[in-house]
Design a binder for these strands. Structure first.
Ligand code: MN
Ligand code: MN
Ligand code: ZN
Ligand code: ZN
Lengths: 138, 138
DNA sequence: AATGATAATGAGAAGATTTCTCATTATCAC
DNA sequence: GTGATAATGAGAAATCTTCTCATTATCATT
């Protein structure tokens, strides 16, 4: 239940928070704050854009959602599944695929060690064209 | 010589373009448009911020510089060395290290193939703390 | 070297995304 | 239920970047 997750994060259970978290869970994908705001509007919810941004940031701090900074300006958010993964993004249609490659993850550790870095986070995004016909024209 | 690179890109050789390209070459690092603007100001050059943004974008299109989108809002630019590389970024002091790992590069191809993607580009950024004393407190 | 068509510049406006402020409202421990 | 406190929503504002347009510089051609 979303409510318990919100409570565990030390946040009060409010309608905007429940709606936003439920939406992210149902949608399952990668949504920008604007996306969330518009979908909620379509669903008849009167939740302010500032609240959407504020709540998404709080959820990120609480570990409920993960922020991804793909190219294109806007951050996108997804439910924190608990297991890290990286992304493939189609530059034509926006499709996003997720992957986790143990070899790549291990190599990163070796590289960090070599340079004396302690890894806190990383982001690997592969941009390309997916296999849909309309994404392969030229 | 910078001038030939600018000419080859189909751009007129102007003072702002020469100054910006020379600065990036001399500095060697990863500079934001604002960084470039301020350094040029300090050097007594009267180059507008809009021109800096415009020229950096043109240089990117021409393949003279590469844009990197690290976390933190601003894009940073570096001279296109001709050889792709990825980055380690210290979240404490901002230090940037570059690396190229053949294993990681190969695995990406395999992953893209598996998902039916044709890779156009990719970005791997490892965020962490570098080995400087002041970057390791806690 | 002067001319002129055209491209480039710089200042400020404007666009885009995100955060902040603050008066009002909702939550929840008591 | 009451009240202390947290959350919300609207709009202002901050931040980064692009656009507009009048002015200026470049450079191929004389
Ligand atoms: Mn994902
Ligand atoms: Mn680099
Ligand atoms: Zn596609
Ligand atoms: Zn450091």
């Amino acid at each position: 239940m979303e409510n318990q997750d919100i409570k565990k994060a030390g946040l009060k259970i409010t309608l905007p928070r429940v709606k936003i978290l439920t939406l992210l869970e149902k949608h399952g994908g990668h949504l920008s704050a604007e996306d969330v705001y518009k979908i909620l509007l379509d669903e008849g919810e009167e939740i302010g854009l500032a609240t959407v941004y504020r709540v998404l940031t709080q959820f990120e701090s609480a570990g409920l959602v993960v922020r991804q900074n793909f190219e294109g300006g806007q951050s996108v958010f997804e439910i924190d599944s608990g297991t890290h993964h990286d992304h493939l993004v189609c530059i034509k249609c926006g499709k996003v695929e997720e992957f986790l490659d143990a070899t790549i993850e291990k190599r990163q550790e070796a590289i960090a060690k070599k340079f004396g870095f302690t890894i806190k986070d990383h982001a690997l995004v592969i941009y390309g064209c997916c296999d849909k016909a309309e994404c392969n024209l030229e």
